Computed example of a mutant assay.
Amino acid sequence: MTAARVRTGLVGLGMMGRHHARVLRGVEGVDLIGVADACGDPHGVAGDLPLVGSVAELIALGIDAAVVAVPTAHHEAVGLELAAAGVHALVEKPVAHDVPAGLRLAEAFESRGLVGAVGHIERYNPALQSLRSRLENGDAGDVYQIATRRQGPFPARIADVGVVKDLATHDIDLTAWLARSWFDIVYGQAAHKSGRPHEDLVAFSGRLADGTVTSHLVNWLSPFKERLTVVTGSRGSFVADTLNADLSFYENGTVTTSWDAVSAFRGVAEGSMTRFALEKREPLLVEHEAFRDAVLGVDATRVVTLRDGLATLRVAEAAIESARTGRAVDPRLLARSSDDALPALRIPTLSRTTS
Score class of each variant (00 low, 15 high):
Leu278Pro: 00
Gly271Gln: 05
Arg150Ala: 10
Ala101Arg: 13
Val87Ala: 07
Glu199Ala: 15
Thr8His: 05
His88Leu: 04
Ala277Glu: 15
Arg352Leu: 13
Ser54Asn: 07
Val202Met: 04
Leu49Ser: 06
Arg150Cys: 11
Gly62Pro: 06
Gly44Phe: 05
Arg324Val: 09
Gly40Met: 07
Gly26Lys: 13
Ile63Phe: 03
Gly44Ala: 05
Val202Lys: 01
Thr2Ile: 12
Arg5Trp: 09
Phe238Met: 05
Glu287Gly: 06
Pro126Thr: 04
Gly271Phe: 00
Gly79Lys: 00
Asp64Lys: 03
Gly326Asn: 02
Glu76Cys: 04
Ala21Phe: 07
Ser337Val: 06
Leu284Thr: 02
Val303Lys: 06
Asp210Ser: 15
Thr212Ile: 10
Ile146Ser: 05
Ser338Lys: 12
Gly188Phe: 01
Val262Asn: 12
His19Trp: 11
Ser248Arg: 13
Thr72Cys: 13
Ala65Asp: 01
Leu342Ser: 02
Arg352His: 10
Asp200Glu: 05
Asp339Cys: 07
Arg180His: 14
Trp182Ser: 05
Asp139Arg: 10
Val55Lys: 08
Asn219Met: 02
Pro197Ser: 11
Val30Gln: 01
Ser111Trp: 05
Arg7Gln: 15
Val230Thr: 08
Ala36Thr: 08
Arg7Cys: 13
Arg235Asp: 08
Val304Leu: 08
Gly12Thr: 00
Val45Arg: 04
Val315Trp: 01
Leu32His: 09
Leu296Gly: 08
Pro71Ile: 11
Asp308His: 15
Gly17Phe: 01
Arg336Leu: 09
Leu345Asn: 06
Ser322Pro: 05
Gly86Gln: 08
Arg132Val: 09
His198Ile: 03
Ser130Ile: 05
Ala147Arg: 14
Pro126Leu: 03
Val202Pro: 00
Glu251Pro: 01
Val239Arg: 13
Arg132Gly: 14
Arg207Ala: 09
Ala159Gln: 14
Leu49Glu: 04
Ala84Gln: 14
Asp64Arg: 00
Ser215Ile: 00
Arg123Ala: 08
Ile347Tyr: 11
Ala294Ser: 02
Pro348Leu: 02
Pro348Glu: 00
Ile33Gln: 00
Gly53Ile: 02
Met15Val: 14
Arg336Cys: 09
Thr354Arg: 15
Ser181Phe: 02
Arg207Gln: 11
Ile63Gln: 03
Arg235Ala: 13
Ala245Gln: 12
Thr72Phe: 09
Ala159Thr: 15
Phe291Met: 03
